[in-house]
Amino acid sequence: MNPLPRVVLGMLAGACCFASAAALAQPYDPSQPLTRAQVRADLVEWRQAGYDPLDWIDYPENAQRAGAIVAQRRAQHAGTLAPAGQTTQ
């Protein structure tokens, strides 16, 4: 049995793993559509911040308040994920 095809197959599998890992590390791009899971996670985050999509009476204030809370949490989370030596503004 010739080991060359196994080596080529291993190199191909390694290249595919590297390419998929690099694709997952891409930053958020607003021009790209979100996945269903991302939209659901975003809704959960907004609901935890106090947003109720069925509260149409207090709609603008409710959404603005929850949006401010979500933005603040995301800023805090981004600040904790900053690499050592870098500061966030």
Rank of each mutant, 00 (worst) to 15 (best):
M1S: 10
N2P: 14
P5A: 07
P5D: 02
R6Q: 14
V7W: 00
V7C: 03
V7F: 03
V8G: 04
L12M: 15
L12P: 00
A15E: 09
C16W: 13
S20I: 08
S20E: 06
A21N: 03
A22W: 08
A22L: 11
A23G: 09
L24A: 11
Q26H: 08
Y28Q: 12
Y28G: 07
P30T: 09
S31P: 01
Q32P: 07
P33N: 10
P33D: 14
R36H: 04
A37Q: 13
A37P: 00
A37L: 11
A37I: 11
V39N: 06
D42Y: 12
D42V: 11
E45H: 05
R47E: 15
Q48N: 13
A49V: 01
Y51R: 00
D52R: 06
P53F: 07
D58A: 06
E61C: 04
N62F: 00
A63T: 01
A63I: 00
Q64W: 06
Q64P: 01
Q64F: 08
G67N: 12
A68S: 10
I69H: 00
V70S: 02
Q72T: 08
R74Y: 02
R74M: 07
Q76M: 10
H77V: 04
G79H: 08
G79W: 06
G79M: 04
T80I: 11
L81H: 11
Q86L: 12
Q86W: 05
T87P: 00
T87V: 12
T87C: 04
Q89A: 13
